[in-house]
Design a protein around this nucleic acid. Structure first.
Lengths: 201, 201
DNA sequence: CTCGATTCTGACAGTGACTACCATATGGCT
DNA sequence: AGCCATATGGTAGTCACTGTCAGAATCGAG
């Protein structure tokens, strides 16, 4: 990695950090991109070259966590479906726990700015698609139509667990442990302690 | 309802219809709000009074469906949780099936415009919160902390079913029946035919 | 029907996110 | 040192969206 790349990373990080600082001080809506660029001592054009939208500034870390988890899962081949699902869930949570402050901040910003929330939900949705595809890849090819359907539901449930656990954790960060919470969710789901739709014909 | 209200409804509908027409012809991104206003023969200010954002033009119908379902569920008191979940799911699908063309168009636009997709996911997320609250309201007050957790998971699963079913239906609208698909999803979930995360401690 | 109050409308001016483009500057390589 | 590729910052422009305001349409009361 040459000097060029080093500088790139430094600038990128500087911009994101300044952004969070300003967003934290004045709110997402009351901070302009120009202000962020000025604080990071770059031109607005440069900022846009690194972060295509204002929301990306906030959400890049979350996206990285999700991408990492999917990539990682794609490389695991010995896990069966249930074990794999548990593993991905925990991988995502581990990645997020890497920087709890950021996550906290992200959810605060999502609560105050609709567009951030919307883009966050979009990210989550894309992760769900990726996970679905990954699951399909691991399913018996006998029933292709069935597979996609089943995989989509499994992925949806996995995503629900992650979201629920994270949101609860965000609300009282000190008192709960992410992974522990997730395991509780999973085992209660398996025990039938979670009400499911009836499904009568 | 006076003449005023009648006119309001007419204008509102006219704007939305023209919007879909233009979006369909030229795409979401290549249609400006001014063009829509002009096509509906109103000033841009008027358009914004009816629809706060460009995305609202596309998503209002979906939002109405979801709001209707939640409101309806809020009025049902005799259903237990599993039956209630099934009922809400089916209510949403019924509402959507009211206007299949619109749904089709909405998903096409969501596929081509990131912001539409983001706002759609945001809508879905808000529905999930409402459903969670409604479920909590119906749960024994003995374990309040547990209740929110359980409800969030149930709501997440219900939402997953709706999303999965609708997306599959959008891809091949002719061949499948929405409600039938949903019932299949539900019963397979209950039968344990859907892989769940392992949940070992 | 008329008048006064209320609400709806369209125009204008302005902000800010984002794009396209270009001249300049900087790091990488021979 | 000198050439090439890339990174940067500035300018000009588009478009979504906001706030304000005067005038028009609607409604309700007398």
């Amino acid at each position: 990695m040459g000097l060029r790349e080093v500088k790139r990373q430094r600038t990128r990080r500087l911009i994101a950090d300044k952004a969070f600082e300003l967003f934290g001080d004045h709110g997402f809506g009351r901070t302009t991109v120009e202000q962020i660029a000025a604080a990071a001592e770059v031109g607005p054009s440069t900022l846009y070259r690194y972060f295509p939208t204002k929301e990306t500034l906030v959400l890049e870390f979350v996206e990285d966590c999700l991408v990492d988890a999917i990539t990682w899962y794609g490389e695991q081949s010995e896990l069966d479906l249930p074990a794999g699902l548990q593993a991905v869930i925990e991988r995502v949570l581990e990645q997020l726990a890497t920087n709890p402050g950021r996550i906290q901040a992200v959810f605060e910003l999502a609560a105050q700015a609709g567009s951030v929330s919307a883009h966050l939900n979009e990210l989550i949705w894309r992760f769900r698609i990726d996970l679905t595809n990954e699951l399909v890849r691991r399913m018996p090819t006998a029933a292709p139509q069935q597979a996609e359907f089943t995989a989509a539901l499994s992925a949806g449930i996995a995503m629900s667990i992650i979201e629920t656990v994270v949101r609860i954790w965000v609300e009282n960060p000190a008192t709960v442990d992410l992974k522990q919470l997730a395991r509780a969710a999973m085992s209660r789901l398996r025990d039938g302690a979670i009400p499911l739709p009836e499904g009568t014909e």
